[in-house]
Design a protein around this nucleic acid. Structure first.
Lengths: 240, 240
DNA sequence: TTATTATTGTAACAGTTTATTACAATAATA
DNA sequence: TATTATTGTAATAAACTGTTACAATAATAA
């Protein structure tokens, strides 16, 4: 979203950043058979927002997106996809930002750049939930996973942004081989099927799914097997 | 692209526009069995560019894109798709813009906003070639169709932008029912097949193509028939 | 008027892919 | 050692796509 100067943020009134442009990141993880996204919370208030940030004056847009996601997750290699630009003139509501600035000792004139209109570039990230350490920034003190089913009310058009990100993810699922970024290193065919079913929100038939995935030739079957229930042990797979 | 103030452009040093943000439009048309795009030319020079423009301070991004395409084509209802944002830090080369500004009697300081870095939102438009009247703006005096096969060298990363637009169009061709925007009101099945073949750059088999298109149920067969060659007359179709 | 020619519309068949059913294999528990 | 739940995959059915074939017809030529 807009409204989260990180690092050398409020300094020099933001002269380091491009004005009027922001990045919003929809960071997807998969845990407990649920798709989740990382959300920021402002001091136990009901102000929730997507992780976001600004673009340094000499920084590539993609690099800025990587930086934003990296700072919130602690990850280095991140699967990122730019999916849409949100540019309605009325989408930026300055009031939460004003609250935040005041609380941080910045007395904003009404023409402060952070209170102006922002156009925001949406990126979604697919990460291995088990590898992430959610990290708040200096404005938002909460940074936590929320299942898509129980997302709290969000700032501005951030709910819309999540919706559009999910739609893009769905559309890409079959073309690009994207889902594996949401899995841990080793997983069973059933784990993967549940992930697909969760993203697509529909049941898939087991034999067809297995045949399709294996025919892609991108999985490596690990000799070792799983242990657990009262039944045949499934193979583990790894993405190659 | 960036670098084409239209209308009340250079006035007030561009205070009407958002700075650092531009729109580039790849306007596709279909004529003589070729895909073509509209390009702007600067006073018989070799400076060619995509049609583009800026976003008014209170204007929706999509509205700005419609305005830009409308001004160059004279069309009202335009099929537009936002397909990518180009945000590399080094993509903006200020020198052609400086040339243009000087020639227009604007003496740009080196920090003039038009010479700074721009991030550009790419839109592609699909239009009925026969309905378009290409219209230059006040900076570029040429506005003409160029077949994709013989595009002249373009400013900055505009060649890249066209390439990406075409890739997006191809990807959308089967999902969205997009191709009909490039056809005149009435057309034969063969016309449509040639369009598909041109966009996808591969031959299609006639019976399969006809079956697929008709099964979509979006075409209306017009009773009238075509006249011309020494063979059976094809039906005309209309998009419903 | 009647062939000839080029293309159209569509049927028929073949081949491939996807969906569904079925069942043996096996890991834990009773 | 039988039971149970789940896995891996074979077998079959259904749907879809690719290919061949051919009658219909609009203009031209004989």
């Amino acid at each position: 979203m807009e409204g989260r100067p990180t690092q050398n943020e409020s300094d020099a009134a933001g002269s380091n950043y491009m004005h009027g442009l922001a990045i919003d990141a929809v960071i997807f993880g998969f845990h407990d058979n649920q798709l989740k996204v990382l959300l920021m919370q402002y001091k136990k208030s009901d102000i929730f927002a997507l992780p976001g940030g600004f673009i340094h004056k000499e920084e590539n847009l993609d690099d800025a997106a990587h930086r934003v996601v990296s700072e919130r997750t602690g990850l280095k290699d991140i699967y990122l996809e730019q999916f849409y630009v949100f540019g309605d003139a009325t989408r930026s509501d300055p009031s939460p930002m004003r609250t935040i600035m005041l609380a941080n000792g910045i007395a904003p004139g009404n023409h402060h750049w952070l209170l102006q209109r922002f156009i925001s570039v949406g990126y979604y990230a697919l990460v291995d939930f088990t590898k992430v350490t959610p990290m708040p920034d200096r404005i938002f003190d909460g940074c936590n996973w929320y299942a898509l089913a129980d997302i709290p009310p969000l700032m501005q058009d951030h709910a819309q942004i999540i919706k559009k990100a999910l739609a893009s993810l769905r559309a890409n699922l079959d073309n690009k081989l994207v889902a594996f970024n949401l899995m841990p290193e080793e997983f069973t065919m059933n784990d993967l099927q549940i992930l697909y079913e969760t993203i697509l929100d529909k049941k898939l038939l087991r034999p067809a799914f297995q045949r399709k995935i294996l025919s892609l030739g991108i999985l490596e079957r690990i000799a070792k097997k799983w242990t657990g229930g009262a039944h045949k042990a499934p193979y583990l797979y790894r993405f190659k």
